[in-house]
Design a protein around this nucleic acid. Structure first.
Lengths: 134, 134
DNA sequence: ATGAATGCAAAAACTTTGCATGACG
DNA sequence: CGTCATGCAAAGTTTTTGCATTCAT
């Protein structure tokens, strides 16, 4: 995921775009809101406008470089689309986001859509969880 | 789902609350946004404020009378919580919302959460589909 | 009568857009 | 150099909140 990917997407290699990409690559938390990225860049001394972060993330999404998710709670979160498809598990206590993929669930989804006369285009599955009690 | 349910939830039986409940019960489309409900009431000659619709829906949600869903696209949709749990299938062409329940998917979700050391609290599964081609 | 609920308008939260300036190729 | 991208501020959307008034019990 580097400057070449930007060019391939027809996007000029500008400082804000490179910095946002780097942020998503190096951040501890893979899943960040526009605001998260904006703040992180500000703290690193990078001077990027919030509007630019939103614009760039939207372009990245269209180019298939990032994925946008609407978990519960105000804002959308973005993650690098460098892995294959997966679903998410969000801890209600800590906000931690875990990724998982279950072939059986994937399979059933496709079957269910077809049983109803549809083709499955995409899906959104989020498990909201809490640390196991004992 | 009647006035008794409101009382049981500790909510006074007011005209706006009754009308909103009726709207959700009688509307053709079970899944409505606050704006949808507001407009429908206006067209029926009921004079309810949009803020009240939001307030009442939030109270209904807390009381377990309705469920709130965040499908793609701006606004949240609400449905009466008079059936058991189910997931949703949204047609990208028509906006139609279908409900389904797959015991196997439900089972797998719980297992996956536990395998990661969590208890499953709730989940959100939405299939985005299109009418089958042939 | 009194506490809760409503309507309105204002604000809040998140995201997008218009436009003049600046940077990339 | 021309064009695309940026920053800022303003506007758009959806939802929430403050407050005076009205309503339910």
């Amino acid at each position: 995921m580097d400057n070449l990917d930007l060019r391939k997407a027809g996007l000029k290699v500008t400082l804000p775009r490179v910095k946002i990409l780097q942020q998503l690559e190096t951040a501890v938390e893979r899943h960040m809101s526009a605001e998260d990225i904006y703040k992180a860049l500000m703290e690193s001394g990078e001077d990027v406008g919030l509007a630019t972060v939103y614009r760039v993330l939207t372009q990245f999404e269209q180019a298939g470089i990032v994925m946008r998710h609407n978990f519960e709670g105000g804002s959308a979160v973005f993650e690098l689309a460098d892995e294959g498809h997966h679903d998410h598990m969000v801890c209600l206590d800590t906000g931690t986001v875990l990724e998982f993929l279950d072939p059986e669930i994937e399979r059933r989804q496709k079957i269910i859509a077809e049983e109803h006369g549809y083709d499955l285009v995409e899906h959104s599955l989020v498990l909201y969880v809490r640390p196991k009690k004992q």
